[in-house]
């Protein structure tokens, strides 16, 4: 084989240029440092702050993974499917299933109710509202997003809970109590209330993103529908909703992402204590979500208990990550279609 011979030759020959190249690099580096303009400084700052986002994401996943190693090491996959939650030292046992399901069910209620209201708002704002109303109303709705979640929680606990109990849950349990989902006593301190509070909280996100999507639908689509004799609703259905459907879907998923992660308000109204009993078999039952459990127990958790909470955190993190990436992709698709119809 000729390779060793060549490589021996090469090392001596290549070492020199390599060294020179190194010199050059340091040369230009110092030159650059001397001629550092404010523009370069700005670019450097912006780039590093921008990449900070990635760093935070990576650090978060590393910390969550490291924190949850113990619990996954002990229970393995069983941590995700177990229902026990025993924190007493010696007989510790952790299973996340009731909270995973609790999160999914409350978020599911939130999105199915929230999307209807939000679509109504978005259609009104983009298609019906006179222009002098459009922008102030949009502002007001987006302002809802600025209301702190603890305020929603208080309102849910002291006002909304009783409305839900008296006007929704009492009839539901009286007349539809034979359906497992509506089994139980109406307390207003349960999964249904939490889901409904969440549905209100996601309205700003869902309605403003769907409004933007609808307004991005070219007016030629509406004219097309009008010209074949569509009524106003049919124009919305045929020209606007169909065209913007993936964006609207994305808006809903974005709302879902918010509902999955929302903590404070849910914790205040959902009213369950961790354990196998809070498996969400009925909407009229107290529940616990991933985030509400972390929030209530994180303060005084140690050892394996703490690791279990980290485990919940990593599940929540993955949920939110996947949902948001998916939603962005959907929204992005609509804005891409917009330009390319004729071509």
């Amino acid at each position: 084989m000729g390779i060793p011979r060549f490589s021996i030759l090469a090392t001596t020959e290549e070492a020199a240029p390599a060294k020179r190249a190194e010199d050059k690099v340091s040369d230009t580096f110092f030159q650059k440092l001397k001629g550092f303009s404010s523009d370069d400084l700005f670019e450097f700052l912006a780039t590093s702050i921008g990449s900070l986002v990635l760093v935070i994401l990576i650090v978060t996943s590393v910390v969550l993974t490291r924190g949850s190693l113990a619990v996954f090491g002990k229970f393995g996959f069983g941590f995700l499917t177990g229902t026990d939650w025993n924190t007493s030292l010696g007989s510790e046992s952790y299973g996340a299933l009731p909270y995973i399901l609790g999160t999914l069910v409350t978020a599911g209620i939130a999105i199915s109710v929230g999307i209807l209201i939000s679509l109504g708002i978005a259609i009104f704002l983009s298609e019906m509202a006179p222009s002098f109303l459009r922008s102030p109303l949009s502002q007001v709705i987006e302002l809802l997003a600025a209301v702190p979640s603890v305020i929603y929680g208080f309102w849910g606990l002291f006002v909304f809970r009783f409305w839900v109990r008296d006007y929704l849950e009492t009839p539901l349990s009286t007349y539809l109590g034979w359906i497992p989902a509506f089994h139980g006593t109406a307390t207003g301190y349960d999964i249904l209330t939490a889901g409904l509070v969440l549905s209100i909280m996601i309205i700003p996100t869902v309605s403003s993103v769907s409004k933007e999507t609808m307004m991005a639908v070219p007016s030629s689509q509406r004219e097309a529908a009008y010209s074949i004799g569509a009524t106003r609703w049919e124009v919305v259905k045929l020209g606007v909703l169909r065209y913007g459907r993936s964006g609207i879907f994305g808006a809903a998923i974005l709302g879902l992402g918010r509902a999955v992660g929302e903590t404070m308000a849910v914790t205040m109204v959902i009213g369950g204590t961790p354990g196998p009993y809070v498996l969400p078999t009925s909407l009229l039952k107290g529940g616990v979500t991933l985030s509400s459990l972390i929030a209530t127990e994180f303060g005084d958790a140690t050892g394996l208990h703490l690791s279990a909470l980290f485990g919940l955190g990593i599940v929540l993190f993955l949920f939110a990550l996947v949902i948001n990436i998916f939603a962005r992709l959907m929204v992005w698709r609509v804005f891409k279609v917009t330009g390319g119809i004729v071509e």
Binding site: P218, S220, Q221, E223, A224, Y226, S227, I228, G229, A230, T231, L238, G239, R242, Y243, R245, V337, I341, V342
Partner: peptide, 21 residues
């Protein structure tokens, strides 16, 4: 106006088919 537009059809300057259909 809906009934008027069903009797009087229209074609526009730029082709505007429904792209999702």
């Amino acid at each position: 106006p809906v009934s008027v537009r069903r009797k009087i059809g229209m074609v526009f300057q730029k082709p505007n088919p429904f792209p999702t259909m």
